[in-house]
């Protein structure tokens, strides 16, 4: 017994082991960031709670699956699926969400919750009940040697993609005209409109972009997690927690929230598997007690 404890603690405190877990945490954070940024910004900007955001992630994965199988190219899937999902989001917005913006949060939750089930049945109808997978692209199919360990290079690609999207969005928000219009609309929507800015159009474009990123997350996740009906539900809760602790509407908040949840979830599974699922909720409770508006709220209270 004594021996086992020593051995286990040696493995857990091994710096290489910790570094690898850290990378795993970053990889999960990257995925959560891609998923939560759209949800967060749409909730923060348009006051719209879209529970079906995860459905777009699942659809992105399935469309990526079909494109990758049809063309044999992961990269084509990575480009086509998000565009398709963004276009789908535009239709969805025109038909439904635009009419529901003034509705109460409870109605928004009920309608978008219903859409989760619609999405589930659509996926079952088209692709069936089985679980699928998209193979990683050839270029990232192998492993790299890192700190004397072997680490799948595709996971490093996921981490890099998360950072790339974060930096691109940050640059777009801070340095482009559309970014300035969006910030003006967030600061004071009424004044921005009365200066001639079409805030509704700007927010609509942001909505489509955010949904497209959920589709991107679906394709990116497919080689690592499997593609199956209901894959959206398993990640939706973590995504919602990221939005809440980061501060709705905040780009940096979504990044920070994704980082924290990615790490706590990953290290929790390794060190305290028995209570791993409780850890992230506890973290959320503690953060919300200290900062009810989230860590980096858009409008400081």
């Amino acid at each position: 017994m004594q021996n086992v404890v020593t051995e286990v603690s040696q493995v857990f405190l091994d710096p290489t082991f910790l570094a690898i877990q850290f990378l795993n945490g970053l990889q999960l954070a990257s995925l959560l960031f891609l998923l939560s940024v759209g949800l967060s910004v749409v909730y923060g900007l348009m006051n719209f709670i879209n529970l079906a955001h995860g459905t777009l992630y699942m659809l992105g994965a399935y469309i990526g699956l079909s494109v990758a199988r049809g063309s044999g190219s992961f990269w084509l899937a990575l480009i086509v699926a998000p565009i398709f999902i963004a276009a789908l989001a535009a239709v969805f917005h025109a038909l439904l969400l635009r009419r529901m913006q003034a509705a109460s949060p409870m109605k928004q939750i009920l309608v978008t919750f219903g859409l989760i089930y619609v999405g589930l049945d659509v996926v079952r109808y088209i692709w069936g009940d089985y679980s699928h997978s998209i193979p990683a692209p050839d270029f990232f199919a192998g492993s790299v040697h890192l700190l004397g360990e072997v680490y799948p290079s595709y996971r490093l690609f996921m981490i890099g993609l998360g950072w790339f999207v974060f930096i691109a969005l940050y640059y777009g928000l801070e340095r482009t005209r559309l970014g300035a219009v969006v910030r003006a609309g967030v600061d004071n929507r009424e004044v921005a409109m009365s200066l001639g800015l079409n805030i509704e159009l700007a927010f609509f474009l942001v909505f489509c972009l955010g949904c497209g990123l959920a589709g991107l997350a679906g394709v990116v996740a497919a080689p690592v997690l499997s593609v199956y009906p209901g894959m959206d539900m398993s990640i939706l809760v973590l995504t919602l927690i990221v939005v809440v602790i980061g501060g709705p509407g905040s780009l940096r908040g979504a990044a920070l929230g994704a980082f924290l949840i990615g790490m706590f979830e990953t290290f929790g599974q390794v060190f305290f598997p028995a209570i791993a699922s409780v850890i992230v909720y506890a973290l959320m409770a503690v953060i919300l007690l200290a900062r009810p508006g989230g860590l980096l709220p858009v409008r400081p209270s």
């Binding site: 300035a180 910030r183 003006a184 967030v186 600061d187 009424e190 409109m193 009365s194 200066l195």
Partner: peptide, 24 residues
Amino acid sequence: LPAYRVARAGVAYVPEARGVFPSL
């Protein structure tokens, strides 16, 4: 017309309490 079209039609507006965009 919606507000943004009124503005583009030639009405410039200085709102109550200025409404300067704080984060710009």
